[in-house]
Amino acid sequence: MTGFLVRRFAISIFVVLVVTLLVAWAVRLSGDPAVMLTGAGNVTAQDLANIRQGLGLDRPFYVQYLSFVGGMLTGDMGRSFMGGSSVARLVGHALPLTVLLTFVSLGLALLASIPLGVHAAVNRGRLADQAIRILSLVGLSFPNFWLALMLVLVFGVALGWLPPSGAEGPSSLVMPAVTIAVILTASTVRLVRTTMLETLSAQYIMVARAKGLREWVVLYRHALRNCAVPLITYIGLQFGGLIGGVVVVERVFNWPGMGSLAFDAVASRDYPVLQACVTVLAVMIVGINLAIDIGYGVIDPRMRNR
């Protein structure tokens, strides 16, 4: 187990390094932060050269990259090209908001998809199963930005129950979280249903029922536990996509999280901010996957000794 963890950990660090290198290289392929800094305004070539020198962009690529990695290791993320705010401060504001949004969405999605999936599996082929399957197909077909705009129109504008944008209170969280959760629920329901169907045909379920256990104990204590491994694997795989979806949703709801921060940084070629965002998100995604690998052992005793 220890050897496995060390190996997984080393691979994770390698992945993060490769990601940061790729991003640092790719973002420099096009565009010029010096021009964006001026709003493409009235600038001369000399102004641009001065600005580039001020930002340290006249140094060779490897020097810029190494100073970035060195900075990250010492906890100094540098300063934004746009206005010189501390990147650590920007990320420090944005990251908790994105983590909150992601985990609340994930929680909502699990809370909805597990009972629905189980219910569909138990009632296989009946009306409830059909209805849940059709609904999940509808959910899957929503583009997230469209769903977001519809929610805003109904609950933000027409009914006035929820704030259409911003991060001003718990009510601000509802619409963005629901938008992400709906789409995630739709796909997770199908997975829960399928794995539940497989599990329910197993002999130990028959035994459990024969023992006279109550149905919910059979389903949620015995059967569901055996669905956990594929479910957690799936959530882990979805996590990267989830973060991608967060970028769009954050923008529509003007949620000042990592997605909004990264999006602006791409548009303005704010290298320090973009590199820091990508690094932090990469660490998050890699970390979640690492946690899931470790989590297998906790959930499934058979995996502990492998």
């Binding site: 805003v152 129109l153 504008v157 259409p164």
Partner: peptide, 14 residues
């Protein structure tokens, strides 16, 4: 600071 014009419109309507 609200980037999306549609979000600005929704906030104005609300």
């Amino acid at each position: 600071f609200i980037v999306e014009p549609d979000t600005q419109l929704a906030e104005l309507q609300a």
